[in-house]
Design a binder for these strands. Structure first.
Lengths: 351, 351
DNA sequence: CTGAAAGCGCTTACAG
DNA sequence: CTGAAAGCGCTTACAG
């Protein structure tokens, strides 16, 4: 353990090798876990690395074709707190699996998305995570690039199905939980705030509602009112507020509201309360996402939790499974995560 | 313009050179804007690059010591929506300046922070942005690493002063705006929710309050009550809720509250309302950050806007100024951004 | 204005 | 078990 002090800064395998009286190739073998190194040598190298804080250059590794330990993560936007939670969760999960995460935002613009993926591929990362899938425009180009460079990729909760390993959130199930909860409370007529075919994930939810409505012999047209805007911009509090104003003008207002997400729900709730309506006295309200704020408004919002950590754990598992040389026969694995109903105080009996 | 189709995929300067009948060195010169290339040749290369979607490998460039076009961004945590807004804003600003951003979260843990900076340095990035500064433990090590590798870095809104270019948010000014607003409404006694010396940025705000209190001949002890917890964990809605419960037990409750941030303010507001207090009828409340949700609770929250975009614009300017070879004489430039008061409906006259 | 060499830090064959 | 070569894609000197 008589570790001499290094001459200069140890910033390469060559420098480390010189310092230890070994050749740089031996260092590389230890780094890559090759079995032919004498255990004693291997131990010495590892100890010195920790002691000197030496980290092999990811740039060198990448160029030579080795593993870089880096995973690229691509998000469409960071507007909603749920996305921030996903980023934080994914970052931690990746770190736990020994990966470093590079995040990029595309603002939902196809040309940026393409540029980002191109950059990820050029960086020779170990894998890609596409949160929310990809735009239709780039589908062919991105799939071709991934195949050409043999880059593993995972989709998380994509808006459309694609021929890539995928972790899905069962949104149809989520909305059914909310719908059933309201049915049990005796509600029979419903307003949908911001949920339509055009919005991301809207179709899956409508499907869930339709199926359940049919099984309960509710007519979609008679019992359901859909309130949406053509180009709403951000799907946020202000959108909920605007939709609530439309709701207030309805002749025969449903007593239960299902909102696109918690922000829309809270924006709407605030507006309804300002109009003198009581939640849940006059109208019951359900959100989606279980944002932290949902538990801290008056009344606490009933909502659906996405199980973000579970989504991310599956994603990283799918990624490492691909990265590993085995198991590559299994084509396009799919994992489904079921969201959960969080009952708050914004839903009550239909009177 | 008779562009022949390439033989295979064009994935290196060598391949592009062959395709164009040039040498790969010429391609490199065009890439780096060297002046000795014939304009016609330069134009041909640029056109082909766009047409073929060729992007020079950042890995190759990094290894050779050239500019990588990548900037590392280090955040302590992603708990608050304000951080998400900062990330999104910084990403856009960096993109506008031709940089790609790599984001890392440290969860406020020194060992992760050190690892992250080490990795950024090893990646030979063009620069670093440290949002919220760095932990005291790593100060010496990180400054030494940056100096040794001549890596430019910018601090955004650091909790402590450091010998690096810095963009500061004038928090002292922010809290004074809030305080003055309440004074003008006739308030004389104040509760501080979560604002103390121990919490990040607490000292600057207390300083602002003290100065203003002195100038108005208010005694800090007689007119100000501080409510905080020793180890509050997340500075979020739930924290505000707990502090509001403490506030409710006070014998002689101040009629004005200054909260650490909007989450604490909203958590507190909700709790106060549940206790039957009216905001602002019984108590006025001011937050900090101007989160989107602040404008969509009942009543709309009076708060302080950080001018996030301005912060980020300054940061990227400082970074590019460093990256450029000139201007390096100027030591540790500092930019100060003044926050702004956003008057909502949560503050009213003291009656 | 353009060609050819050297070398950034690493890994994977190929020798011993 | 370990040494030395080749080469990943690029840029910066140095020649012509």
């Amino acid at each position: 353990m008589t570790s001499e002090l290094p001459q200069g800064p140890i910033a390469s395998t060559t420098a480390l090798a010189r310092h230890l009286g070994l050749s740089r190739w031996t260092i590389s073998r230890v780094l890559n876990g090759h079995p032919e190194v004498k255990p004693e040598t291997s131990r010495r190298v590892r100890e010195a690395m920790i002691q000197l804080g030496f980290v092999p250059s990811p740039v060198g590794r990448a160029l030579r074709g080795g593993r870089t330990g880096m995973v690229g993560v691509c998000f469409q936007a960071l507007g909603s707190p749920i996305v921030a939670r996903k980023i934080a969760s994914l970052q931690r999960t990746l770190r736990g699996a020994g990966f470093r995460a590079l995040f990029e935002l595309t603002d939902g613009r196809p040309e940026i998305e393409l540029e980002v993926v191109r950059h990820f591929v050029a960086m020779k990362l170990d894998g890609l995570v596409l949160v929310g899938g990809m735009t239709t425009e780039n589908e062919a180009a991105i799939l071709a690039m991934l195949a050409q460079h043999r880059m593993s990729a995972v989709l998380i909760d994509p808006a459309r199905e694609l021929a890539l390993p995928t972790v899905e959130l069962d949104r149809e199930h989520g909305i059914r939980l909310a719908f059933e909860h309201l049915l049990e409370l005796g509600h029979t007529r419903f307003a949908l705030l911001g949920i339509d075919e055009d919005v991301a994930y809207g179709r899956a939810r409508l499907e869930g509602i339709r199926k359940l409505a049919r099984s309960r012999r509710l007519s979609f047209d008679k019992h359901l009112v859909t309130l949406t805007e053509k180009s709403p911009g951000s799907l946020d509090f202000a959108y909920g507020r605007r939709l609530a104003e439309r709701y207030l003008t309805l002749a025969d207002r449903p007593r239960a509201i299902l909102a696109l997400n918690d922000q829309v729900a809270i924006g709407a709730m605030t507006r309804l309360q300002q109009a003198g309506l009581s939640v849940p006295g006059d109208v019951s309200l359900v959100g989606f996402d279980n944002l932290e704020v949902a538990g801290h408004v008056n009344p606490r919002l009933t909502t659906i939790d996405q199980h973000v950590d579970e989504l991310m754990t599956h994603a990283v598992e799918l990624l490492t499974r691909q990265t590993a040389p085995a198991g590559s026969e299994e084509s396009e694995p799919r994992r489904v995560v079921r969201p959960a109903l969080i009952v708050g105080e914004s839903t009550g009996r239909a009177t």
